[in-house]
Design a protein around this nucleic acid. Structure first.
Lengths: 116, 116
DNA sequence: CGGTATCCATAGCGATACTG
DNA sequence: CAGTATCGCTATGGATACCG
């Protein structure tokens, strides 16, 4: 696997959190502590099987998630946040805040961080 | 022009700040107060003429930049941050911070927010 | 249940050339 | 000097089918 080359530190962070469903995944795991593949699939609904797999792989490779496989039949896989993953949550929160304050809710399909 | 529809407030913010050169543009204008098209082109170097134009248009349409055209020959156009644009700077700063702390500098082509 | 492989549609950006 | 138009490349993600 090649080392990624980023334009700058902003670009680096962005490439790591960027991905259609990644924030949903991170928040859901953060709130529940630990989730299985099927849980995430059901929670997000609109994500395809293959895409969810790839987003999870990328989050794992970037060191935000840890993946635990139970050697059972049928398979069981659990995802949880790493320390680095947890350190990202405040950043995501700020991004969400700004979005809520600057974009009309009518343009949002879903609201992640309701706060009145 | 259609209203954008975003997955959520995070996605909304991301779509607005996302774009290969947008942060460079925003920071440069923020630090200098005001920049012309040619200044930005020269500062960023690697950006193509057309792409710079489009990124500026999008930033303008999203209300982060204001564009002032001087009716002269040759043309003169100045870009500056709007109030909303300025409100975004702390968010960008936090994103940069996280990137600096979590990605080796050897993987960065350029560093935006040097801070020791 | 969770993962992989193949194929395809779409969006973002770049190269280039042309305009007022 | 600043902007527009056309074309092409590449990356992301979705549909589908198959595997352990």
């Amino acid at each position: 696997m090649e080392k990624a080359l980023y334009l700058n530190e902003f670009d680096a962070t962005l490439q790591i959190i960027q991905g259609k469903w990644k924030v949903l995944i991170l928040y859901e795991i953060h709130e529940s502590g630990c989730r299985r593949f099927g849980d995430l699939k059901q929670y997000i609904q609109d994500v395809s099987h293959k895409t969810l797999t790839r987003q999870l792989r990328e989050l794992e490779q970037d060191g935000l998630l840890s993946r635990k496989v139970y050697p059972e039949v049928p398979p069981k896989v659990e995802y949880s946040l790493t320390e680095r993953g947890r350190s990202l949550i405040p950043v995501l929160d700020l991004i969400c805040d700004w979005g809520l304050q600057n974009v009309p809710k009518t343009q949002l399909q879903r609201v992640l961080c309701e706060e009145d």
